[in-house]
């Protein structure tokens, strides 16, 4: 309660000051609002609307003309009854729990390492690490796909010669083979975000640390990491959303192995419903559920991090 009162007290004068809406502010906001409405709010609203519809059939065997009627929440209950759809969430969660920490650890380690090497090499290495991000996900998946297929892949061939016979596309392994592709694609990107944050740290802090007798390791752990926290939170949120929306990689790998099912990830499930099964209404419901889960998880992660931050600050 107390926080609410204190907030209204501080905001009240502000409200009086701008008693009239500032027209110029709206003019500045307009391009954003227009794009936001057109590419985000409208499609979202349309998806929600479609998720509430269903076809009504007529004629012999239902092959006659059909109309669209309201379904209420039928599509949602149908989606939540499909065990394959629920399993796809479990799968991406498992994927995220393993892949996100590995990727962010790698990105952080790379960023810290780059921050210490000399400037001339830093540029070259940074570009090299970042390069995979420039390769579209589909192409990356095709490239890695060739490296996974036995009989074609030199990698499998080499490992086979030294007595290892990895089945990259096997039922238990393919999820981690996909994780490898995603890490390859995005570790460099996340590294760059963290590097940018590290560059923003004032040099005085390093000088002060050096004077206090801190070595490279201590500077990295006590100064760089805590100050890179906003970047880590940001990359964490992006990664959570990206993981839930996993689509291109499994879609491309799917023809190579029966282990990737048509509802391997929530997005793939919605895609299959929409375009293979031609049930856009169910697909819309699945997409809305996916969006809800993604926002719950990312806002949950943010509030968790913020709570910890507040606790730490106290």
């Amino acid at each position: 309660m107390s926080t609410v009162i204190s907030r209204t007290k501080t905001s009240a004068p502000g409200g009086r000051r701008s008693a009239r809406p500032d027209r110029s502010a709206w003019a500045f906001l307009l391009p954003f609002v227009a794009l936001f409405a057109f590419t985000f709010v409208l499609p979202l609203g349309y998806a929600v609307y479609q998720s509430l519809l269903k076809p009504i059939r007529s004629g012999p065997l239902g092959l006659g003309p059909a109309t669209v009627g309201f379904a209420g929440l039928d599509n949602y209950s149908l989606a939540l009854q499909q065990s394959a759809f629920l399993e796809s969430f479990a799968r991406v969660l498992l994927f995220g729990i393993v892949q996100i920490p590995v990727m962010l650890l790698l990105a952080t380690a790379l960023a810290l390492a780059l921050d210490t090497v000399s400037n001339r090499w830093a540029g070259v290495l940074r570009a090299a690490y970042f390069l995979p991000y420039g390769v579209p996900g589909v192409i990356a998946s095709i490239l890695w796909g060739f490296l996974y297929v036995p009989g074609v892949s030199p990698l499998v061939d080499l490992l086979g010669r030294i007595g290892l016979a990895p089945d990259f596309l096997g039922y238990d392994n393919v999820l981690w083979s996909i994780a490898n592709i995603v890490i390859w694609e995005f570790a460099g990107y996340n590294m760059l975000v963290i590097v940018a944050q590290l560059k923003a740290i004032p040099q005085e802090l390093y000088e002060a640390a050096r004077i206090d007798g801190a070595g490279q390791w201590q500077t990295a752990l006590r100064i760089k990491l805590p100050l890179a926290r906003p970047a880590l939170v940001l990359t964490g949120v992006f990664s959570i959303i990206g993981t839930l929306q996993l689509f291109a990689e499994p879609l491309i790998i799917k023809p190579l192995t029966p282990a990737v099912s048509s509802s391997y990830t929530p997005n793939l499930s919605a895609y299959t419903e929409a375009f293979a099964n031609n049930n856009i209404y169910l697909a819309a419901a699945e997409s809305v559920i996916l969006a809800l889960v993604a926002s719950v998880l990312s806002f949950g992660f943010l509030s968790l991090v913020n709570r910890k931050e507040r606790r730490d600050a106290r």
């Binding site: 394959a84 039922y171 029966p258 282990a259 099912s261 099964n277």
Partner: peptide, 16 residues
Amino acid sequence: DADFAQLQDAFGAAIA
């Protein structure tokens, strides 16, 4: 299409 997709998934799972 849908029937085949599900049969394909089930075959993959059964073989694994």
